[in-house]
Design a protein around this nucleic acid. Structure first.
Lengths: 249, 249
DNA sequence: ACAAAAGTGTTCCTCTTACACCCATGA
DNA sequence: TCATGGGTGTAAGAGGAACACTTTTGT
């Protein structure tokens, strides 16, 4: 039996996703404190150490509110990053200085959040010195934040297929095309227009608003809303357990 | 910006599952140190604090090896349990004494492991004072370990449907009936014999051994093995991305 | 009138489901 | 010979995939 005293700092880092109608974006912030060794212009995910009386979920919510001004947004845990060497010594110095703590090790818990992008939020995040960057264009981040982001993205992909998280990324009213573009952007696949509409409508979770696009130089598209209560009903009548061994992939 | 010094002990707890041909079992251990307040006969999941230079996965592997004598078994992270009040003060005393540490808070990371039950392992675990208990019969565990176990079970259920983890729980050679019973036990559903065989065979991931049961008072069943390389092939040719919006549940 | 995106149906095919009887063995 | 579980086929229905043209609007 091992009885070594061992304790670690625990942080959360949030991959915050938004969708601009065409591209999937992630919220990145500039590191505020830089030293000679660490370049001033690299980006990181919003994150924080957890406070004494906080759950991890609570810490992640707080981070989200600090960086976007939003409460009650979709937020879910992904993985934990616990490699003892996940941050270099230099990075460790930075972290201790930035957070005003002293520790030899930081274990971080990844979260992913989904945000409905509006002008208000974009302005707010800009004011906070944050940026919404196309996920496809992100090839480097501070520390292991690219790993955390990639992991979050892969979780998002899975969830998009099996649960209606898509609607967390769309405005209240949206067109079929926006919904379809979202699937295309996140999953990176081509989707047939007709089959897509058929499939979505067959679930009955979309409610037509009767309103249409205006000032578009083509046939205006109808706006829909997500019928969450209808979805709940479907969810409860889940008799789809014949799905034994979908191992075709 | 909050700059409170904060650090926590991090532990791992492992839900270790085994299958005896009919029932799904979990490995439980008795708490070794008891006090006046804590009853001596409650059970917990195998677990440990993480050591200084260990990843979480490493700590979980170590726990598994300590409690089963096995290395290289299936092991995967589930969730993190970080409620500041997840263990009572009394429990906290026990933990500090048991692990020889001093801390105000323990965050624990859940893992689930899958073990091929053999006489060897059952004997080993018995010698270690551990027991294999029907998961259906477990209604109380120390601390929040029942939550951790339930969470692990729900992850196992999902994984059983979408990936071939079933074979981690079966001996190298197994009959169709064993495989089917495993699905029934884990998923809690009825499964039609003929459709099940058809589905499994159609994937091509089972290799007949030509060998049959002996000394059974009925037509002897054939033994099969899991064709992992064939599965890898299937896995790589995953062109099943038409699965858009399986929200029928 | 033209450019641009919205909206709409049908056919083919695969996969899922439901269902009942004979076979091989040990007792 | 009987009890026990192993092993097999088919038909009907649902859901997925592929595919092309007309409609509405702004310019």
């Amino acid at each position: 039996m091992t009885t070594v005293e061992t304790s670690s700092a625990i942080s959360v880092d949030c991959a915050v996703f938004g969708f601009d109608g065409t591209k999937l974006k992630a919220l990145l912030i500039k590191r505020k404190y830089t030293t000679d060794d660490l370049s001033a212009d690299d980006l990181k995910l919003p994150g924080s150490m957890i406070l004494e009386n906080e759950t991890l979920q609570g810490a992640a919510s707080r981070v989200l509110e600090e960086s976007t001004g939003l409460r009650d947004i979709f937020l879910k845990q992904t993985s934990i990053f616990s490699d003892p060497d996940r941050v270099s010594d230099k990075e460790m110095d930075w972290i201790c200085r930035y957070h005003g703590i002293k520790t030899r090790r930081v274990v971080t818990v990844g979260y992913y959040a989904l945000v409905k992008l509006t002008d208000g939020i974009i302005n707010y995040t800009l004011k906070m010195g944050a940026r919404w960057v196309d996920v496809d264009d992100i090839c480097h981040l501070a520390m292991d934040h690219l790993d955390i982001l990639s992991d979050a993205l892969s979780v998002l992909r899975k969830e998009m297929i099996y649960s209606p998280v898509a609607f967390e990324l769309l405005p209240k009213r949206f067109t079929m095309r926006q919904l379809q573009n979202l699937f295309i952007a996140v999953l990176g696949v081509e989707i047939d227009d007709r089959n897509f509409r058929k499939k979505i409508f067959s679930t009955g979770i979309l409610k037509p608003t009767g309103e249409k696009e205006k000032n578009v130089s083509h046939k205006p598209a109808e706006y829909y809303t997500f019928n969450r209560s209808e979805f709940r009903k479907l969810e409860n009548s889940r008799n789809k357990l014949g799905f034994i061994g979908n191992w075709s992939y």
